[in-house]
Amino acid sequence: MEKKIVKIKVNGDWHEALVKQNMTLLEFIREELNLTGTKEACDEGECGACTLIMDGRSVNSCLVPIMEANGKEITTIEGLAKGQDLHPLQKAFIENGALQCGFCTPGMIMSSKALLDNNPKPTEAEIKGAIAGNICRCTGYNMIVEAVKMAAEPKS
């Protein structure tokens, strides 16, 4: 298969790479850039473990052909913390017990971030709607919803 050059901005830095055109954005992120925080769990867009943010919207990166991501701006879970300083969502997930095995966590946090970026004070229904595409097998979700609420209303 003919390879093509793509230019993608990931967590603030532009990356240029020669890639197979049948590559997915998930493969690019994990295998080309070694950003392994983004997880693969179903490879058919049903579980949300591979969620990242592309041009401000949350996407299942396993369903995004690499050429579609060309020229776009991507944020992965690794792009949230500023050095040692965690993002409010990350802190809230830890404090609320919103993660157990942690495998769905990056995707869950990225879906939540896309929500809060566009809607800083969501209702509970809006939070549930935003993470309805993310499966968590461990927590039963309640603590995740609480964590997103907490991150949305930081204590002053």
């Binding site: 950003l35 925080g37 879970i77 913390a81 965690l86 990350q90 830890i94 017990g97 942690g102 495998f103």
Partner: peptide, 16 residues
């Protein structure tokens, strides 16, 4: 008590 592996998992740094 928050999990001892919470920071690694929430930041995407935990190694599976």
């Amino acid at each position: 008590t928050p999990r001892v592996d919470g920071i690694e998992k929430a930041s995407g740094k935990a190694i599976y």
